[in-house]
Nucleic acid binder design. Structure first.
Lengths: 343, 343
DNA sequence: TGTATTTATGTTAGCCCTATCATAAATACA
DNA sequence: TGTATTTATGATAGGGCTAACATAAATACA
C-alpha cells in the first residue's frame, strides 16, 4: 500500500455515512454540525488517518493557509528568533510559513519581480521584517496587489497596513537612564542605519534621557553604524581614540555592542571597569560573549506571534477590514556583566 | 481592477490563440512545442502578466513545488546559513521553502504526529538538518510515508535516503595538524553531543592527527559539550583548572570555542599567546568576537544548495530511484587571531 | 505517391476540496 | 395545529491546472 495515495474527504464521508460537505464543515470547525455527527466524522477521520490536502483546500476555498515571511539582510540572530516564534505559532494555528529572502530587492527595478514571485504562491498574508517594512515602493506594490500585510517595526506610513511595533524610543530612554543612574554622563551612542525607523527612535530615546537628566548632548559622541559587528568595532576604535573618550557606549544593537567590546579588548581597555558597553535586542550573541552584554530585551518572539495572529484574523471571514496596530510595551533591560556602577 | 482575481491559463490561451495545454507545455518547459508557438505564448504571458497558480498546479500535477526544511534545536547561525542558501537556490529553481521546527520531537510519542503534519502540506521533498537526520524513528516513518528526503550530515543509516555530508573527520584532522604544526602538543578537545554523527567524526579526526604526529592521546583533555556557548565556557574553565592545562583547545563548534575564549578572558589568560583556541563551522560568531576564531569553514551554503538540487532532481520524472550521496570535500581552514605560532 | 513515423497541438477528465444554493429536520410561536 | 424560523445536511458546480489519450500536421522512407 502506497502511502502517497492518500485518503480523501470522500472516503471519510463514506465511512462516516455523511456527505463530503459535512466532513468539510467539521474540518473547518463550523458551527452548524450536530454534536453526534461531529463525533462520527471525527472518528472516521481518526480511523482513516485522514489529512486534508492543502492544495485542494487552497484551490477551492481561496485560502492557502500559507503565510509569507519576507526579510532582507537580517541579523542572523534576529532572523532566527523571528522564525522560531513565527513557526511555532503558525503550527498552533494550522498555518505554514513560507520564507522569502528578498535579497534581490537591492536594485529597485526588481521590486515588481518580487511581487510577481510572491503572487505565484497564493499567500494568505505576508509579514515584512525591517527594513523591508519601511520600503515604500515595495509596500505600495503589495498594497495594490491586495495582499494582507503586517509590518514589523514600522511606525510610519502604516495607515492601511497592520503593524506590530516595539516602543524603541521608550526602551532606549530606559537604557540611557540606567547608564546615567550608574554614574555615566559621557555616553557614546552608535546609531543604526537610517532606513530602519527604529534607528531614529532609539536615537531619540537616548537624547530624551540625556535631556531629562540635564546632560548636554554632544554630537561628537554619536556615530552611525550598519548593525554589523564590524561597524561596531570600527566605531568603538574611533570613540576610544577621542581626546576625551566616553565612559559608556550604548550601541543600537547587540552585534555592534559586541564589536565595541572587541575593540576595547584589543587595546586592553577593561570592560566594564574602564568602559561600560550596552546593546539592544537581547539576541543570542549578547550572552555568547564575555563580558556578557547588558541589553534591552526586544520581545521578538511575542511580536512574531502577534504578527501571525493578525494575519490569521485578517484571513478569517469575520474581519472588519481595519488594519490593526499593536505596540509592544514590554520593555525589559537585561543586566549582565558589561555594565557596572561607575567606579 | 482587483489584482486578487488573477489571470488564468485560459485567458493566456485565448490571447495566444492556442489551447490551454499548449500554454501549460510552455510553462513546464516541455520540448514538444514549436518555437514560433512558444514565442506567441510567452508574449501572451508577458502581456497579461500571468502567474500560474501553485495550488492548482499542485492539485492537478501532484507536485507542489514545496520543499520542506526541518530542524530541531539548531544553532541560530547554522540555521540561518542553511536557510539563506537553501532559499536562494529554491528561488532559482522555482521552488518554495516551507520551514518546520520540529521542537516537539522531544517526546518520542509525537514523532508520528509530526509526520502527519508534514503530510498535510504536500511537500515534494524534505531536507533534514542534523541531528534530525540521525533520528532513526523519524527516518523510518518518513520513509514509510514515501517522501523523498535528503539527510544533512548523516553518514550512517543512509542506504535508502539521499545524503549530503561534510568530511568532518578529514577537516578535524587538518585542523589538529595545523595546531601541531604551530607547536602545540597538549591540545584539549571539546566534543559535541553524541547524537550528532559529526561529533564522533570530529573526535576521530582529532585522534588520528595526534596519532600521526606521534602524540600520546590523553583522555583527560577531552570533554563533551552540547554545542552551546555556555558549555564551552564551563569546559574552558575546567580545562584551565587542570594541573597541566592544554596550550591549545579545539572546540567542535564555534559557539563552544567562543565560550572557551570568554572563560580565558575572565581569568586573564591571553588568547592566543597563553592559550590558542580554534573552532569549527565558521559561522557568524567566529568573526564577531575578539580575538576572531581560527576555524574550519564548513560549506553550509554549498551543502544546502546540493540538498535542494537533489530534491529537485528526485522530483523530476526522469529519475532512476537511486538515492544520491554527496560528500563535500571542500575543507578550508580560516586562520584568524585566536591561533598563533607557539612562543 | 502512399504509408509509417515523428512532431505538434487539442480534448477530455479529474486532482480534492469548498461556496452556494437547495432541501430536510427540528424548533419556535401564534 | 399550522406556519415561520432556525438548524442541520446534501447536491452540484467549479477553482486552475495537468495527465493521458486523441488527433492533426509535418516529415521520413519505400
Amino acid at each position: 500500500m502506497n502511502k502517497r495515495q492518500p485518503i480523501t474527504i470522500k472516503e471519510v464521508a463514506e465511512k462516516a455515512g455523511v456527505s463530503q460537505m459535512t466532513v468539510s464543515r467539521v474540518l473547518n470547525k463550523q458551527k452548524l454540525v450536530k454534536e453526534s455527527t461531529r463525533e462520527k466524522v471525527e472518528a472516521a477521520i481518526a480511523a482513516l488517518n485522514y489529512r486534508p490536502n492543502l492544495m485542494a483546500r487552497g484551490l477551492a476555498g481561496g485560502r492557502s493557509k500559507l503565510i509569507g515571511l519576507a526579510y532582507y539582510n537580517p541579523s542572523p540572530s534576529y532572523l532566527s528568533a523571528l522564525l522560531v516564534s513565527a513557526l511555532k505559532h503558525c503550527r498552533d494555528l494550522g498555518h505554514h510559513l513560507v520564507i522569502e529572502d528578498l535579497a534581490d530587492i537591492e536594485n529597485d527595478s526588481d521590486t515588481s519581480a518580487i511581487v510577481k514571485r510572491l503572487s505565484t504562491i497564493r499567500l494568505d498574508g505576508l509579514i515584512l521584517a525591517p527594513p523591508l517594512s519601511s520600503n515604500t515602493a515595495l509596500l505600495k506594490l503589495i498594497q495594490e496587489f491586495g495582499l494582507p500585510t503586517v509590518l514589523l517595526g514600522n511606525t510610519e506610513s502604516a495607515e492601511s497596513q497592520s503593524t506590530v511595533v516595539f516602543d524603541d524610543t521608550a526602551a532606549a530612554q530606559r537604557m540611557t537612564d540606567l547608564l546615567i543612574e550608574k554614574g555615566h554622563d559621557r555616553i557614546g551612542f552608535i546609531c543604526g542605519p537610517l532606513d530602519h525607523p527604529s534607528s531614529g527612535q532609539r536615537h531619540d530615546g537616548y537624547r530624551q534621557a540625556l535631556k531629562a537628566a540635564g546632560i548636554q548632548f554632544d554630537e561628537a559622541l554619536v556615530f552611525e553604524g550598519d548593525f554589523t559587528f564590524r561597524s561596531g568595532m570600527d566605531i568603538g576604535d574611533r570613540m576610544l581614540d577621542l581626546d576625551v573618550p566616553p565612559t559608556a557606549i550604548f550601541a543600537s544593537n547587540d552585534d555592534m555592542a559586541a564589536g565595541v567590546i572587541a575593540a576595547a579588548q584589543r587595546r586592553s581597555v577593561q570592560v566594564p571597569e574602564q568602559l561600560a558597553i550596552v546593546g539592544f535586542d537581547d539576541t543570542a550573541i549578547a550572552a555568547a560573549i564575555w563580558p556578557r552584554l547588558t541589553t534591552v530585551h526586544q520581545p521578538i518572539a511575542e511580536m512574531a506571534q502577534d504578527a501571525v495572529d493578525i494575519i490569521s484574523q485578517v484571513t478569517s471571514s469575520d474581519w472588519n477590514g481595519q488594519p490593526l496596530h499593536l505596540i509592544n510595551n514590554n520593555i525589559q533591560i537585561i543586566e549582565r556583566e558589561s555594565l557596572s556602577e561607575r567606579g
